[in-house]
Write a protein that binds this DNA or RNA. Sequence first.
RNA 1: GCACCCGUAGUUCAGCUGGAUAGAAUACUAGACUACGAAUCUAGGGGUCGGAGGUUCGAAUCCUUCCGGGUGCGCCA
Length: 657
Amino acid sequence: MQKTHGIGQFHVVGFHDILQKSELNLIQIAHGSLSPMKPDLEPKVNLSHELSLDHGRLGVAGDVVAALVKLAAAGGITEGLPTAVEIARWMERPPETHLGDYALPCFRFVKSMKRKPDEVARELGNLIDTKSSWIAAATSAGPFLNITVNQPRLMSWLLPAAASGNIFKSMSLNEATANTRVMIEYSQPNTHKEFHVGHVRNICLGSSLVNLFRYSGYPVIAVNYIGDEGTHIAKCLWHIKRAGVTAPATKKGEWLGEMYVEATRALEAAASVSPDAKAKIDGEISAVLRGIESKTGTDYNLWCETRQWSLDDFDSVYDWFHVKFDRVFFESEVSEESQEIVEKYLQSGAFVESDGAIGADLKPYKLGFMLVRKRDGNTLYATKDLALARRKFDQFKIDRSIYVVASEQNHHFKQVFKTLDLMGFKQAKQCFHLSYGMVVLPDGKMSSRAGNTVTFKMLHEQMTGALNQILAKYAGEWPAEEIATTAKQLCEGAVKYGMLCSDPAKDVVFDMENWLSFEGNTGPYLMYSYTRTQSILRKAADAGLKIDFSRATVVHEGAVRAAYGAHNVADSERELARWIQDFNHAATASCENYRPSTLANHLFYMCKAFNRFYTDVPVLKTTDDALRQARLTMVAAFGATLKEGLGLMGITPPERM
RNA sequence: GCACCCGUAGUUCAGCUGGAUAGAAUACUAGACUACGAAUCUAGGGGUCGGAGGUUCGAAUCCUUCCGGGUGCGCCA
């Protein structure tokens, strides 16, 4: 992609195929290349890309800058003024709709003009050309300049751009992010253990993050890291052999998880009998472990066989959630490398010996001591994380590394990242641990001892029950296959939305009944909103209103503009358009903050606005042909935006429900 | 003992790099369907933003300190 001279780090040339020529000038003005002011201002790249696609916001900012130049010139000031990109970033949505579409807090830039914010806001309001292309009215309210957008102009750009999906496709064409390779590691289940709802939250967060980063234009490698070795597996196998049990024909992985739980109980019971009994068992388990590590014999064969059961089970879970990994790492494949790492960095001085063991001394950084090799010569979990990180840097050439892991491991990852830094990896500073809180039950914390954990198996069974209920409603009316698909989409969406709609740092209350209640801030509410759009569009097509929303044509823009020029834009339409317009901003923020909840909330408010619009103004029943077409475009624009957003959360809405 | 995270309406949560009168959902109360599908919408009450200081034009947001809850802190993963 060719760089365009004069507009800093913005590359508008690559968007020729998507943007219309008339918009290019606008962007150049907005970024300062056609303006005399601050051409050397360094923009914040990531946020600006999304801004450059928001012609409405930039257009308004451009018109404000034009007035600002006049105002400043009158005072003899020509330098140090903000660019349109800065203005656009500062513009807020006013607290009350009737105040306008944007509010510009003038205290952000008046210092360079040596003026009071109230005065600047008032004079700017008088200077702004309301005959200009984007601004219909501008009035001051104290230090704020409240701006009402030229609605026909805005709608004519926004609605076709969203309905066609061009505005979303453009996001991935971001040169600023295209050269940063990101690896996102998530899921990380242990074989021979239960797959519980905590793992489900991890899958939802991780896969959504992958989507968000890809949407923002990053090349993303999605990876999994499976724990397939360690004493927990030896315990499980020890129990199976001792109890002489055999696996069922199906769901063998789940069965292994149950056997592990039984093993733990049996172990505790046996160990409480006497110290001798405990020692005997410990010896037996060590023998199993050695057997596995010897890579030969019955214990090793049993490990191979049972390990595969777990892996098969994991695959079925991933299929259920529609997640895919580009690469799957195993603990067992980095074991040997971890030993080599210990040797190498012991010599380099990054590691030191202590009490017969080896580790990294992180006390100067208030992170304690990170053990990498035990006295018995074995490496640890942390050592393998170091080995894996090195592989990620060296073999996969990644620039940023993201780990989605529960908050219990905050300390662990601080240690790992600091140690990687001490080992000399410059990418250590680009490592990020997305820490998330626990999944708790409505009546309190989950604990395996209290016997109130929720496994994926239980979740799946509960949802199958809910599934059947939904199934019954349309039996005989819809094709059986569609009923099954729809019910599945609803359940999957309910779970994903419930897992993602609140801040990752906080615990999430797992309340299946609420999530599936279909009322309020739930996945089904959003999906229902989507089906309403499809219902209208289907009916429109049936009535012969064939509008091709797949392309944003000039003709289409003209029609929307004419319709809203001749008819008032209802408040509900204006508000809905706002949420559509701010979608890319929400997606970008969601990505950069590692918080899918930001996007989830945006989608929820957008749906609220749509449902108000739905009851407030007629669409198909609109008598004026042009207005009806414009409103149909609004419906299509909202539907496309919502579908895009749900997709980023890993949710596919049904077409009807 | 030390470190990190959380504390906003009865409950579950929003609140963007500090911005105008702190917003939703739920529950409760009162309304709106000869339907662009009411799995929806409208209206109402409900809050010392854990407490106290500080920073400034301005603090739920930033700093300090205390209180409450959680997690973790060299031979597990």
